[in-house]
Design a protein around this nucleic acid. Structure first.
Lengths: 222, 222
DNA sequence: AGAGTGGATAATGTATACAAATAGCTCTGG
DNA sequence: CCAGAGCTATTTGTATACATTATCCACTCT
C-alpha cells in the first residue's frame, strides 16, 4: 500500500467521499497529480480503479467526472442489494457458525455504541454496518458475489447521505439487525431473508427521504 | 476505437477467449506490448480493464494472470445470474412492450437457425442468446443491473464451454426461450421468473456436465 | 445576427527511460 | 540432501516528454 498509485487512489477516493470533489465535477489528471505529489501515471491508474468502483465515470471522449448518481440509479442499487443480500441472508442462516454469529453481534454492539452517543457517531455506525453485512456475505459463501456487492454497498451516495439519516432511522436499523441476529441464531433462513428484504428497503426509504430534504435545502439556498 | 489501448484490449481479450492465452498463464506487459505493436502504457491500461471484466487477475505482488475460474467460482456466477435474471424476468413481464417482444422473438429465431444446421453454429447461438437476455434486462429497466450482469454472463468460462454443450442442451435452451416468450406475451411475471430460474440452472448443469467430460478428456490425453 | 470555421488552449494518449520490487536460481553451510 | 542467504534476471512502478485529440472562443462570411 505504499505505492504511489495506491496513495493516489485513497486520496482521490476520500476527496470524492468527503465531497471535496463534488458529484459531477470534472477530474483532471494533472491537477490531481500535483495535489497528490505524484506524476500523472499513478493518477491514471487510480482513476481507472475508481471507475470500476463506479465512483468516476468517463465520457465518450475520455474526460473523467465524479459519478453523479441519479435517484433512479440509487434506487437500482438498493434494489439489487435487496435481492442479492436477502438471498445471502437465507443461505447465511443455514450455514451460520458460532464464530460468525459472535462477530455479527460485535458489529451490532459497535453500532449500538455509535448511536447511543449524545451526537450519533455516524462513522462508527457505518463501520459497524459494513462489518455486519460483510460477515453475512462471507458466511453465505460466495466470494465473487460478496465483492460485487461490496462495491455497490459502499457507494458514495449511501455514504454521504448516511449523515442525513434521522436518529430514528439509525435506531430502527439497529433493532432490525437484532432481529436478523435472532433469525440467524435459530438458523431460520426464510425469516432472515424476509427481514433482510425489508431492512434494505427501509434503508432505501431513509435515503430517499434524506435526499428529498437535501434537495429542498439546496434549492432554497440558491 | 482506434486508440492503441483499445486495440490492445481487444487483441488481448481475443487471445484469452480463443485460448491462445490459456487460463492461469502469466501475462507479461512487455511481451504483449511487442505482440500488439504498442508500448507498455496502453497494455497496462488494457490489463486493468480486463481485470475489472474478471478476465485477468492479479496476485498480491502485482503479477497478472489469465483468470482461472474454479468450478465453484462458475457455480457462484450462475447462481448470481439465476437470482438476478429471474427477478429481471419478472419485472420484464410486467413492462413488456410489443417492440421488445418482437426483438426477443427475432433473437430466438436466430438461435433456431443456428442450431438447426447440420453442424450447429455455436457462434450464432451465443450471439442470439446474448441478445435474448440483453433485451430482457433492458426491459426490466435497470441499466446498472444490466451492465453488471453482462460482465458475468459473457464470461469466458461460459463462452469457451458453450462449444461443448450437447445438441440436446442447445435445443432445450431454445424451447425454454419459447416458454419465456409465452410468459412475456401473457405478461405473467411469476411464470417468467420461475422459467428463468430453471433455465439458468439447466444451463449451469449443461456447463458442469460439459466441463466434467472435458476434464476427463484432458486427463486421458496426458 | 447566426452558423460555421479556424486556431489557441487544455486534457488525455503514448513512448521511453529509469527505479523499485519480485521471483528464481545458485551456492554455501549444516 | 535440504534450508537458507544472496545474487541475478525478470517484471512492474513511476516520471517525463511528446503526440494526439477535444474543447472553447473568437472571427468571418452569409
Amino acid at each position: 500500500m505504499s505505492r504511489a498509485s495506491d496513495r493516489a487512489f485513497e486520496a482521490i477516493r476520500s476527496m470524492i467521499l468527503s465531497g471535496e470533489l463534488p458529484a459531477g465535477a470534472q477530474v483532471v489528471e494533472e491537477a490531481l497529480a500535483e495535489k497528490c505529489g505524484v506524476s500523472r501515471t499513478p493518477v491514471r491508474d487510480a482513476l481507472r480503479r475508481l471507475e470500476s468502483d463506479l465512483l468516476v465515470v468517463r465520457t465518450d471522449t475520455q474526460r473523467s467526472f465524479v459519478a453523479d448518481w441519479s435517484l433512479d440509479d440509487v434506487a437500482d442499487a438498493f434494489e439489487l442489494r435487496s435481492i442479492l443480500e436477502a438471498e445471502a441472508a437465507r443461505r447465511a442462516a443455514d450455514q451460520m457458525t458460532e464464530g460468525a454469529l459472535a462477530r455479527i453481534r460485535d458489529a451490532n454492539r459497535q453500532i449500538a455504541d455509535a448511536i447511543m452517543k449524545p451526537v450519533p457517531d455516524v462513522g462508527g455506525f457505518l463501520e459497524g454496518n459494513r462489518e455486519f453485512h460483510a460477515v453475512i456475505l462471507e458466511v453465505a459463501g460466495s466470494r465473487r458475489l460478496a465483492s460485487l456487492l461490496g462495491t455497490l454497498i459502499e457507494q458514495p451516495v449511501v455514504w454521504r447521505t448516511a449523515h442525513h439519516y434521522s436518529r430514528e432511522a439509525l435506531h430502527r436499523s439497529h433493532s432490525e439487525h437484532d432481529e436478523l441476529i435472532a433469525a440467524f441464531a435459530r438458523r431460520d433462513g426464510a425469516w432472515a431473508k424476509s427481514i433482510m428484504t425489508s431492512h434494505i428497503l427501509r434503508a432505501y426509504h431513509a435515503y430517499a427521504d434524506a435526499h428529498g430534504l437535501t434537495a429542498e435545502f439546496q434549492q432554497a439556498a440558491e
